[in-house]
Design a protein around this nucleic acid. Sequence first.
DNA 1: GCGTCCATGTAATTCGTTACATGATTCG
DNA 2: CGAATCATGTAACGAATTACATGGACGC
Lengths: 190, 190
Amino acid sequence: MALAQAILACIADCPCTGYDLAKRFDGSVGFFWKATHQQIYRELAKIEEQGWIVGETILQENRPDKKRYSLTESGSNHLVQWITEPTELLVIKEDLLVKLFSGHLVPPELLIAELQRHQQSHAERLGVYQTLEQQFFANPQSLSLKGTCSYLTLRKGIRYESDYVSWCEEAIDLLKETKTSTTSSFVRES
Amino acid sequence: MALAQAILACIADCPCTGYDLAKRFDGSVGFFWKATHQQIYRELAKIEEQGWIVGETILQENRPDKKRYSLTESGSNHLVQWITEPTELLVIKEDLLVKLFSGHLVPPELLIAELQRHQQSHAERLGVYQTLEQQFFANPQSLSLKGTCSYLTLRKGIRYESDYVSWCEEAIDLLKETKTSTTSSFVRES
DNA sequence: GCGTCCATGTAATTCGTTACATGATTCG
DNA sequence: CGAATCATGTAACGAATTACATGGACGC
């Protein structure tokens, strides 16, 4: 399981609290890894016990105390070791494609509407990513190695969303043609 | 959880056994949904109890007996109902991007090698999908609605893999440039 | 004789999800 | 005056992963 490593990667980038992590996993990092705050706090306790991180309690006035975690050397070694190991390919579990697989069981208008919804959601995300690209990565050739690494994860997001939008368009178009060319075919289910 | 519905969708397409399902989830359907045989048998027991499928035991000679499942009307209704509901977007958990996020902690050569491995794997899958496209979907305009639906899931696979291959290429190129332009930067970790 | 295919399952453990809980502060 | 933000957690449940188990048939 890579939740532990995803947390280590975030803490390596910048020491932070469970609460901060939850926010990051819900935003930028969330493009390639999602986790809820409950998962995070449980995992933090586990990897602190492992000795990969140490937490220092920070007392605050007018706010709850917080605990900021930093990588230990052992944690850093583990992370580097993990990065070095060959990675499995992503396992996809996409509801929308399961639905489309049995899509002939429902009126095509319904499929088209659903595809349009998804097209819009992905277009929105694409917009967000493109804004980030313009703001922070105007000149990709001149980035440091760290910068390049961040930029490449963003590029993956941009490509992914942009491809999703195009596919939705293709799918909607083809369904519209199919629909009109076989008008009698939707009253065929028992 | 959509495992139940993914199984229903397969059985709706063609009645089959748990063993058959496991093979399908490992092959074609596996592009958009993965499941092991243990998950499948457990889920089959659950959805048979629900009344969405019925199993008939088929006695065999020289082979273990098997149980072939078919959709009930209730199961078919449920599947249609599920397809009709709005779908959540896919939650991505991609190890490779987590590694890239902390990629500056390891020598860039290592990242490049890993990206090349992935590029090759995705290129292989792409080849498989493209062969299927040529064999079974030579003429997309003339497909039935059912054919169009299958074709569109395949198109998603083709786009996904092809985009992945392109991104790997982009990433490798950029890392090679970054590497040479900041040669001194990898001996900087404590 | 050894591995693979057929066909189904149990058991243990880890991981993910949902609900519940606290309590002060700040913004509208 | 109510909602959101900060900050952390417990408890219960459901789902996924991994390991273990059986046993004949067939090809090399």
